[in-house]
Amino acid sequence: MREQAIVEKILKEAPYAEGKVRRERRVEFTVPAERIKDFLMTLKENSFELMLQITVVDWLKDGEYELVYQMWSITHRTHAMVRTRIPRELDKARMPTVRDIYPAAETYERDAHDFFGVYFEGNEKMEMPWILDDKEQGLFPHRKDFDMLGYVKRKYKILDRFDENKDNYVI
């Protein structure tokens, strides 16, 4: 099986990672957060040319952020998910930047920082304004404990039209 061979080859070069085949043309790796740079370097050497996105998933119950690096290999025609977990406290949610390996990551890291507050060390554009306005900086609205309804009510001054105590609105 083609995918199995890819996973085995990469795991041989990076023994600290775990990997498996999800299905045809889909593989998945889990790496510790501090080894992410080494692992992405290994992936790039194994011709995973494109970085498609960095997704942050906020696992509130576990107290962790899951970062999923979506990679695509044009040579192998395979999609790889590289998962890693970091604590979700804002002062501890820090990752090394992978901008020097995949320059495209700079934009994705800015996106992750704006909405989740993950700080990528070494990315010079981290403090530059991205999508959110100045007033919304530091709110990190995609975090699961962000009070979206309360924010909307306060911002647009529609407090009287909603019941404060009702919690299952579908806005």
Partner: peptide
């Protein structure tokens, strides 16, 4: 960017 942000993912 940011003029069209409507927070669809959230």
């Amino acid at each position: 960017p940011g003029f069209l942000h409507r927070g669809f993912e959230k």
